[in-house]
Design a protein around this nucleic acid. Structure first.
Length: 903
DNA sequence: ATCCTCCCCTAC
DNA sequence: TAAGGTAGGGGAGGAT
């Protein structure tokens, strides 16, 4: 999953070139190009010759001379230099061009920069064909095997110049991988431990959920244990939580292949030695400068892992980070995250091992599968750590906590070859702190009667959630141990730390933690962020990288079948006074962080849209690309995609619903039958509740700020779907059943369903397990005010954002609409018919929008300031004026709740 | 009051 | 050389 290339954007499914996000901005881009050309021409230049008259170059990638120098050369010798490729770009200048870019070059020749320098040297335009970078440009070839034309046969011209320059430049640029390289993201991810940790953690959270969904309730491991131990079921009154944590995970995995290093101080790093081979004496000064600045900017009281005054890093010390170190190494003061150079100073005999990413994945999988054979009451914390509710296991097997702990630890050791530690307690905090005592390679049960005394000896620094900043604040209050807090004042703690954190730490100091294990995690955000190797030399490289990130987050989004509504661009910008070249090789150095979100009220998941938004934010921020040291795209306000076909067909198979109308039928709107059959939302508008009124077409323009438009659930597209049932039995037939089911309004209906179907439904709409909408209440005519969110706070935070929270039955019905899903092939759509249909629905005052056209609206009126119905009419207008020439083919008939406020 | 945005903090 | 990611909780302060 890490290996996704960034080259998917240029082709659609059929392999034809599609727009790169600028189609609709053509005018803007043209203007921008003109402006750049203009600046170029107005520069104060001294013409030396006209040999490049008519030549218009675009520089792509790293070249020698640099792009800036080439720009000057072109200016002084009568050519043009383009920042973007245009239709009249005549040559692309590159020294080394990876495959992914080639696709986009088309017929324009890719020529080595020597063509320019040598032409200038001879003062005449040489034939560029001798300087072509690739022999066969039209054919796509494997990235690494481009036959490069040798320049050995160059005659006179090459003798004027040192040939070596271009070739060294080429090798240099392949050796130094910065984010300018299209392959960078992939390469970086495959070497990043932090990326691995993050993605593996998310995967296991997902895995536990999936295993629970498809579990048959049988646990072979547990059953075998019952037989083997032959004990009677016991009674365990209180809840028992187990915390499992692998001992210095990466090291343990590494030691499987290097048993000779067991018992020795060992660390996992990329670097092989504690010193770097550099003979650059200026390095020390640059490092000192950077560290001083870092120290200066460090918040008061906070300690830094990077600048440890007692462990000053000299100019040659390796700044490769230690991902994990053995307990033997920790005795020397080594810590995870420390630089290798520092570590070697503390422990000269330290052995280093390389990463073994495949090994980590394998061991993690084995670990989870092992535990899962006993229970699925697992909260995955990370690839090497989890909480498990073991009460049922202990009950069933009759084992004591200690016996169970020994058993599971032995088994994990056996199947993974790696040791782990386990802690037990009556809540997750106690279990976790027990693990701390158990480590390494042990087990400990913190029994309820010992909690208070045990806790009093725990340093506050050991509490989960207390890091260096919080610790500094606690020290300010003269608190160091949990015991000191047990008698202290909660108020003063909250004043210093904030309400939530203050209370949590207060609770924790007493050994309390009422947060239940989370077995089913639902993602709230997705992001991809790179703060390493960012050194852009052209704006294009920067844009390309933003595009790679866009592809990445888009892919991750669709992997979990979600869409997003919020986008934030995060930039790390070299701080004023920070050296341009960082102490750590290609690191980010001391930076200012900029977060900027783009206002957005429609959902998206498409990479092109993400790119366009992110790029727009970047352009607006006006940060010079050369100063960037980190770039990230964060997507938030996620929602599951509407279930399209599969779950529905499952329901059909089960006979829960009947499928009747496979295609859109304008004349006989399925909405009508539902409306008329279920409730009395007639055509008269005067008697409606205010909430309904705001959806009335007549009130558009002034109702957009009405109460209805403000709840958290309202400014978003929401959905449900159902198939129309032919049976007309007063709305209580299959369709009504399914609709209620999907809305999670009637939990009784849910309960009556067969187990497997219920599970499907729960999977799709897990957030509605606590139904937020009271059907009885919402049927009352006066629902002027949305439900008070405060009343929902007892249920989970998620519930608050449920699509159906805050919606009354009336509103839901009013909001039902048809969503026509479009496909990329628009050829056989009858525009007239659709326009008619839209008009018809408009007359009925129903909400209607085409998903694909909504994207169109968003593209073209990105700053729309109107309500949903205005957007709707804009769409109709657009159809009538031919602005939207074609819609997608109508594939599915679905009803979707839609209530959107576009800013 | 209640939201949203832009941070900071923490954990692995 | 080196691979400084990612997700969630929450607070300050402005907008409404």
């Amino acid at each position: 999953m890490c290996g996704r290339g960034s080259n998917t954007r240029f082709k659609d499914k059929k392999g034809k070139d599609i727009d790169d996000g600028f189609d609709h901005w053509g005018g803007y881009m043209a203007a921008k190009r003109a402006k750049l050309l203009d600046q170029f021409h107005s520069d104060n230049i001294v013409k030396l010759s006209d040999i490049f008259s008519g030549v218009r170059i675009l520089v792509n990638g790293l070249t020698h001379p640099t792009a800036a120098e080439l720009k000057n050369l072109m200016a002084t010798h009568g050519g043009e230099f383009h920042m973007y490729q245009t239709s009249n770009t005549t040559h692309i200048i590159a020294s080394n061009l990876p495959n992914v870019k080639i696709k986009h070059l088309g017929a324009v020749p890719v020529v080595k920069p020597a063509w320019i320098t040598e032409s200038i040297a001879l003062n005449k335009l040489l034939d560029y064909s001798r300087y072509l970078l690739y022999t066969n440009q039209s054919r796509l070839q494997p990235a690494l095997n481009f036959p490069v034309i040798s320049n050995q046969k160059f005659e006179t011209a090459s003798e004027f110049l040192e040939k070596t320059k271009t070739s060294t430049e080429t090798t240099f640029s392949t050796a130094t991988k910065t984010a300018s390289d299209p392959k960078f993201l992939e390469e970086f991810y495959s070497n990043s431990r932090l990326h691995l940790i993050a993605t593996l953690g998310a995967e296991f959270k997902l895995l536990v959920g999936q295993l629970r969904d498809k579990s048959d309730g049988k646990f072979p491991g547990r059953e075998k244990l019952i037989v083997e131990k032959g004990k009677l079921p016991s009674t365990v009154p209180q809840s028992i939580i187990m915390h499992i944590d692998m001992d210095c995970f990466f090291v343990s995995v590494g030691l499987r292949k290097h048993p000779e290093l067991k018992g020795k101080p060992v660390a996992i790093t990329h670097a092989r030695s504690g010193v770097i081979n550099s003979n650059d004496p200026s390095k020390q000064a640059a490092r000192d400068q950077e560290f001083a600045l870092y120290q200066e900017r460090l918040p008061e009281g906070k300690t830094s892992r990077v600048v440890d005054i007692t462990q000053k890093i000299d100019g040659l010390a390796s700044m490769s980070e230690i991902a994990s170190c053995s307990y033997e190494a920790r005795k020397y003061g080594l810590k995870n995250g420390m630089f290798l150079g520092q570590a070697i100073k503390l422990c000269p005999e330290l052995k280093t091992l390389p990463y073994d990413f495949e090994g980590y994945k394998e061991v993690s999988n084995t670990l989870y599968n092992t535990v899962a054979s006993y229970t699925l009451d697992i909260e995955a914390v990370s690839c090497d750590e989890m909480y498990v509710d073991v009460k049922q296991i202990l009950l069933d097997t009759g084992l004591s906590v200690d016996e169970w702990a020994t058993h599971i630890r032995n088994e994990i050791m056996e199947v993974t070859g790696c040791p782990c530690s386990t802690g037990f307690g009556s809540n997750r905090l106690q279990a976790r702190l027990a693990t701390r005592k158990a480590k390494p390679g042990g087990q400990y049960y913190l029994e309820p009667q010992n909690v208070e005394s045990y806790m009093s000896e725990i340093p506050l620094a050991d509490l989960p959630g207390v890091g260096s900043a919080t610790l500094a604040k606690l020290r300010n209050l003269a608190y160091n141990m949990c015991g000191e807090l047990q008698s202290g004042s909660l108020k003063s703690l909250q004043l210093e730390l904030g309400n939530k954190l203050g209370e949590r730490i207060w609770d924790q100091a007493h050994g309390n933690d009422n947060k239940p294990l989370d077995y089913h995690h639902e993602r709230k955000s997705i992001s991809a962020e790179i703060n390493y190797g960012i050194r852009f030399k052209t704006k294009e490289e920067c844009y390309n990288f933003i595009q790679s990130l866009s592809n990445e987050v888009s892919n991750r989004l669709s992997d979990i079948n979600m869409k997003a509504r919020g986008l934030t661009l995060k930039l790390l910008v070299r701080a004023e006074g920070a050296p341009v070249e960082t102490a750590k090789f290609l690191g980010h150095g001391v930076c200012d962080v900029i977060n900027k979100s783009s206002p957005n009220n429609i959902f998206f998941s498409n990479a092109d849209i993400i790119y366009r938004e992110a790029k727009a934010v970047y352009d607006k921020l006006n940060v010079p690309f050369a100063e960037l040291r980190g770039v990230g795209i964060h997507l938030s306000k996620l929602e599951k995609n509407a279930p399209i076909n599969n779950p529905l067909s499952d329901f059909l198979k089960q006979g829960v619903v009947k499928k009747v109308k496979p295609n859109l039928d304008v004349e006989e709107s399925p909405i009508k039958s539902l409306e008329s059959s279920t409730s009395k939302v007639g055509a008269s508008s005067g008697t409606k509740s205010s909430s309904v009124k705001s959806m009335n077409v007549k009130s558009r323009g002034k109702a957009t700020r009405g109460k209805r438009g403000k709840g958290p659930g309202t400014s978003r597209i929401m959905h449900t779907f159902l198939e129309r049932s032919k049976s007309d039995n007063g709305g209580q037939g299959e369709e009504a059943t399914l609709f209620k089911l999907r809305s999670q309004i009637d939990m009784d209906v849910l309960k009556e369903l067969p187990e497997d179907i219920r599970r499907e439904v729960m999977k799709e709409y897990r957030f509605d397990i606590n139904p937020p909408v009271d059907l009885e209440k919402s049927q009352k005519p006066d629902v002027a005010k949305p439900k008070n969110m405060g009343n929902l706070s007892e249920t989970s935070q998620r519930t608050k954002y449920s699509p159906f929270a805050n919606q009354t039955w009336e509103q839901i019905k009013e909001g039902i609409k048809i969503w026509i899903k479009s496909e990329t092939d628009p050829s056989n759509v009858d525009v007239e018919m659709l326009a008619d249909h839209l008009r018809q629905l408009a007359l009925d005052r129903r909400i209607e929008i085409l998903q694909s056209c909504f994207n169109f609206l968003h593209r073209n009126f990105s700053k729309l300031s109107c309500s949903w119905h205005q957007a709707y009419f804009s769409l109709v207008d657009a159809v009538q004026q031919g602005m939207v020439a074609r819609y997608g083919k109508v594939l599915h008939l679905e009803r979707e709740f839609f209530c959107c406020h576009i800013h």
